[in-house]
Nucleic acid binder design. Structure first.
Lengths: 208, 208
DNA sequence: CTTGAAAATTGACACTGTCAATATGGCGCA
DNA sequence: TGCGCCATATTGACAGTGTCAATTTTCAAG
């Protein structure tokens, strides 16, 4: 507590992040103005400047908090499960995206979030490494680069979610299997990642 | 010409779209302000209001022009080719994205572009239908829904491009095959789309 | 207590999108 | 030819934005 807690407002930083998150859910990222956030936290319009260099820094902090939340969801979902762990990893993110579209949209808005931020970047690296770890544990990845499989899975999940949220692709299901489209996509790609026998690799696609 | 051409400026509408495109390339979508576009076109700050209801309408027109451009690139790339036509379709969009990142970013920014616009939506439908047509022409899609394959391919392409442009995933290549990551992703998914024998379907995933 | 620095406020600035009121120009019609 | 009309463009204004400088408030260490 040498730095946080106590003082005029009593940890305004966290209050600002929470206010920003509420505005984000209610009005989208465009509604998260510094002045609106400050008002919601009950301080003057210039108060946030003491805790965040500019609007991008504030939104980057929000994104960091959300990526941490996602990580926790993944870890708790993964606990005690031993099968299809990579699939659970991806499903957790996709479910989060459809449950909180405004938040997910912010996470990848590179004009609003600094993905190279010293606090945020390690979280992204860690998430990616986590997916690779799960993939490496699974059996048959015959002659497949783990990174390639990880990037393929994450790309397809993100692409489908992003295009859905943009209005492309209506919610639909596979006409032959009848399962939700998202599941059909995973059923299509996951078997391709492990064709026959076994042999594995390490990871290093992100920031190599 | 009953409406366009002639008058004070001589088709200001097109000039504004071109000015917006220049600003988009140079400064990103945030730099495309109505006032900057107007200045670049040599008119006053309120002149664009006669041609576009608001900023979103202007940017939607820019997006429409770009989707038309992409369509042309696809059609000219497809002309006279008979093999891997779906692959060419996807590659054309991916190449466009990496060549013009600011433009590609705009295309899917649903806060800046109205994807349900009466002029734009048919273009998106047409593009999607075009991919489905190419897939339907290809041989073995054993027991696979064409829509599911189309959505899978487009999702993976878009997801990879979007995440690359956001800073996730550095450019890299498959460690076992040595090919560029994008090609490795396609090599992974394309064979999965056509496992063994044949049988086909129709299309209807977008706006069903 | 005093004092000094962190935190918060106030006020200002340039910039944005958009609206209302006004001016301008070209075309149809007499 | 000249008149008038309406689409087009301009000017001016407004509220709202992020950010900066100057000032005041508050806490805690000395």
């Amino acid at each position: 507590m040498t730095r946080t807690k106590t003082f005029h407002h009593g940890n305004l930083r966290r209050a600002l992040i929470e206010a920003a998150l509420n505005l984000l859910d209610a009005e989208g990222s465009a509604g998260v103005t510094i002045r609106a956030v400050a008002a919601k936290a009950g301080v003057s319009h210039a108060a946030p400047a003491n805790h965040f260099r500019d609007r991008k820094a504030l939104l980057t902090a929000v994104a960091k908090a959300e990526f941490e939340q996602i990580s926790e969801h993944i870890n708790s979902g993964l606990a005690s499960r031993t099968k299809d762990r990579a699939r659970i990893f991806l499903d957790t993110i996709a479910n989060y995206a459809f449950a909180h579209p405004n938040r997910y949209d912010l996470l990848w808005r590179s004009d609003l979030v600094d993905h190279a931020d010293a606090d945020l970047a390690p979280l992204l690296d860690s998430l990616y490494a986590s997916l690779c770890t799960e993939l490496a544990r699974e059996p048959n990845h015959a002659g497949r680069d783990i990174d390639t499989v990880a990037v393929a899975l994450w790309s397809m999940m993100h692409g489908y979610v992003a295009l859905r949220l943009s209005g492309m692709f209506e919610p639909a299901e596979d006409r032959v299997t009848g399962e939700p489209r998202y599941d059909a996509l995973m059923s299509l790609l996951l078997p391709a990642a492990k064709p026959a026998s076994s042999r594995m690799g390490k990871r290093s696609a992100r920031k190599p």
